[in-house]
Design a protein around this nucleic acid. Structure first.
Length: 429
RNA sequence: GUGGUCGUAGAUCAAUGGUAGAUCUCCAGAUUGUGAUUCUGGCUGUUGCGGGUUCGAGUCCCGUCGAUCACCCCA
């Protein structure tokens, strides 16, 4: 047992884990590019005050925050939206609107690790800045659906739970609930699904409401409500409305959402939300002291819950396996059959790599049998045997075991051609 | 931050308070120009770490560090 272990809540990614992680990143990037989003990368450490301003002083309890050697109060980012808002406020005039930006980056929260939650996780953040119309909200909802579909998930596996903060604003206005109770109210609604009914009722009574009133209001809301009309029309046109379920109980924790809110839920495993987001039209203004007013909406997806879901889904795992097989394989393994030809072997390695092939070989003298085992372990498609007969070279297809003899000067071109062909053609034929 | 369960070889796991083991992996050989299988041999442990009880602790007790589940929180 090693003397040192990973620090609580942090993770190592060994090659197999890293392949899955890169697969997830690749799907995220691919879908983001298809939707016209551009990638950016914000700072990993911010002034602690940035998060206090957005979320209040209590937030420091869940921050990795400290004083640096220059006496600055700083924190590892617990999310990337404040960073984005800061960046947008600083240079939004340089970019045409709408700004469609995405980021893949590690975030850090000092919380107790448990299922679906670590202290370090990767968040995929996708935002549209400078567009107030709900068409932007619809674009994001559609995007979140396509991200899920890119992993092989269909309507049986997940659903979008959609709501709108304005429903509750109207409700609270009608009930004449004071401003200072409204944040508390939204937290009660957020927890209602998990909390016992009596507890919810007690908490609601404390601010002048009752569970019955709230339940009646929720029952009165459906997909025909006017507030959802633009999204419904937009997503129906895209053929995606069947993924959406109206659910007024979705309000999303803290107070900065101003309109549409939605979450991606899996339907089979009762995990926590896979992703969530909504419209936050006032945040850029808040974090820039009112200097920049930029309407915005965005959503975020974490890698931890998504990985759990993938690991429980056979279809999604097949996609991962195919990706991993490709990521952890090589095109060619050079077998040095005659150690006096190592110079020629190194020249061959270099030439094939220059041609763009993935090439590996034994760094030290090994028996031929060992080298073929290594070729197998390296998941190479071809073994290239450099021996006494050089410049005549034996090339063995490690999938169908066929061998051919090639002259050194044509080797690279021939291999590039053969590698470009589908792996299993020979077996099918 | 609070509480439950858990921590033994690289991995998965055994071992009544009484000699720390099995399987797989890995390494070497059988096999000095061809991958599999098989066979033979071999390595790795202060039983997470630190204390305590005991003639004797992997086992019981305390602390600590991790893991896991739940609470809290979930931006």
């Amino acid at each position: 047992m090693a003397a040192f272990q990973t620090v609580k809540g942090f993770r190592d990614f060994f090659p197999e884990d890293c392949a899955l992680r890169n697969y997830i990143f690749a799907q995220w990037r691919k879908t983001a590019c298809r939707y016209g989003f551009v990638e950016y990368e914000g700072a990993v450490i911010e002034q602690t005050a940035l998060y206090k301003k957005k979320s209040g002083d209590e937030i420091t309890g869940q921050l990795f925050c400290f004083e640096d050697k220059g006496g600055r109060e700083v924190a590892l980012r617990p999310e990337v939206t404040p960073t984005l808002a800061r960046m947008a406020a600083a240079r939004q005039r340089d970019y045409r609107k709408p700004m469609k930006w995405f980021q893949i980056g590690s975030c850090f929260r000092y919380e107790e690790p448990q299922r679906g939650r670590t202290r370090e996780f990767v968040q995929f953040n996708v935002d549209i800045l400078g567009e107030a119309a709900q068409a932007a909200d619809a674009e994001l909802v559609a995007f979140s659906i396509d991200v899920m579909r890119s992993f092989g998930f269909g309507p049986e596996e997940f659903i979008i739970r959609l709501s709108d903060r304005r429903l509750w604003t109207q409700f609270l206005d009608a009930e004449k609930i004071a401003e200072e109770h409204r944040a508390t109210f939204l937290q009660i609604i957020d927890k209602m699904e998990r909390a016992p009914k009596e507890a919810t009722d007690t908490k609601l009574k404390a601010i002048g409401l009752s569970l019955q009133q709230v339940q009646d209001f929720i029952a009165s809301v459906d997909e025909n409500s006017a507030v959802f009309a633009p999204l419904r029309q937009n997503l129906t046109a895209r053929g995606l409305w069947n993924y959406v379920k109206i659910d007024p109980g979705i309000v999303r924790g803290l107070a900065y959402y101003t309109g549409t809110v939605f979450e991606v839920f899996d339907l089979k495993h009762n995990l926590r939300a896979i992703a969530g987001g909504g419209r936050y039209d006032n945040l850029v203004s808040l974090l820039s002291d009112g200097n920049v007013d930029l309407p915005a909406c965005g959503f975020a997806m974490g890698d931890v819950v998504l990985t759990e879901l993938i690991n429980r889904s056979p279809d999604a795992l097949e996609n991962v396996a195919a990706w991993t097989r490709e990521a952890l394989s090589n095109d060619v393994y050079i077998v040095v059959a005659d150690e006096t030809k190592r110079t020629e072997a190194l020249q061959t390695v270099t030439a094939l790599r220059k041609a763009g092939l993935r090439v590996d070989f034994s760094l030290t003298a090994q028996k031929v049998g060992k080298q073929f085992q290594a070729a197998e372990a390296a998941k190479a498609r071809f073994a290239v045997v450099i021996g006494a007969e050089y410049p005549l070279i034996t090339v063995k297809n490690l999938i169908n075991r066929e061998q051919q003899e090639l002259q050194a000067e044509v080797l690279a071109a021939k291999l590039v051609e053969q590698v470009s062909q589908p792996v299993y053609t020979a077996l099918i034929a």
